[in-house]
């Protein structure tokens, strides 16, 4: 399988002379959910901004569907890679939810029925079709975030990047995001950036761990959460269930779900 996104030896320095990525090598496969984790300032956002061409590598190269991002504009790449910003206030700029969601597809040349149906689908998917006439900036954080997601979903990109989709959300918001990711994964390659390890353990096929502008681990979530030293380094903790498993003598250290935990506990108690 050829990777849909491939980064080779990517180094990136901001104009303000901050080096936010150092020698990143990464391959993301089609139809997988990849979670990028790591402490604040480790370079996660900078990395994914390379995938839709908002940033271009200072050294090295990023290939999206085999094409070098330096040869394409962000607008052209937006057909393939949709990026949902970390801060919804940085992304929302129209005065109606409907217009906000329609902005992307219009730029891609969607017209008439196709346009309407893509906007409607996207808004229904995030459960905000009823709010389509509201002003995006008047909504609460949960809903703002969902509008930004809908505005990308409506563009039907192959890859959808969600930058901290559960950041600042209440429980209900987190549940919504989780079910949304599960819907999205059927048709898209999904990349999430998250500090919510519960969410990562539930949805991710693969985990990329970042620390100090570098990728320090990539592999399955099961494996990732057993890497205590690496996790500590970047101030992360495995999900509670995994920690529980790791605390009980005789149990494997890579328990991820409640079901697994129950099974393992039964084994131990026998």
């Amino acid at each position: 399988m050829t990777p849909i996104i491939k980064a080779s030896k990517v180094t990136f320095t901001y104009p303000a002379k901050v080096t936010a990525l150092r020698d990143i090598n990464l391959e993301l496969n089609e139809d997988e959910v990849t979670a990028i984790i790591g402490q604040n300032g480790s370079g996660k956002t900078t990395l994914v901004k390379h995938f839709n061409g908002l940033l271009k590598p200072t050294k090295g190269e990023v290939l999206v569907e085999g094409k070098d991002t330096r040869d394409l504009t962000t607008a052209q790449l937006s057909k393939i890679v949709g990026y949902v910003f970390q801060d919804p206030d940085d992304q929302l700029f129209m005065s109606k939810v409907y217009e906000e969601v329609a902005f992307g597809p219009k730029n891609l040349g969607f017209k008439g029925k196709e346009l309407k149906s893509s906007v409607k689908n996207a808004l229904k998917m995030v459960g905000l079709w009823e709010s389509r006439k509201k002003h995006p900036l008047d909504m609460n954080l949960n809903d703002k975030k969902l509008v930004t997601m809908a505005s990308i979903i409506a563009m039907k990109p192959d890859v959808i990047i969600l930058d901290e989709p559960t950041n600042g959300q209440d429980h209900q918001g987190i549940v919504k995001v989780e079910s949304l990711i599960n819907k999205l994964r059927k048709e898209h390659t999904v990349i999430i950036i998250s500090h919510n390890m519960e969410l990562v353990s539930k949805v991710a096929d693969r985990v990329v761990m970042m620390y100090d502008s570098r990728v320090i681990f990539e592999g399955s979530p099961k494996k990732a959460f057993t890497k205590k030293k690496l996790l500590n380094k970047t101030y992360l903790k495995p999900p509670l269930i995994t920690q529980l498993g790791q605390g009980v003598k005789g149990m494997p250290s890579d328990v991820l779900t409640i079901n697994e935990l129950v099974k393992e506990l039964q084994k131990v108690s026998k």
Partner: peptide, 16 residues
């Protein structure tokens, strides 16, 4: 700059 980034990510051609 922030808004331009948001618009470019949504397919608006701002270069050229």
């Amino acid at each position: 700059e922030v808004i331009i980034e948001a618009q470019r990510s949504r397919g608006l051609e701002t270069q050229g």
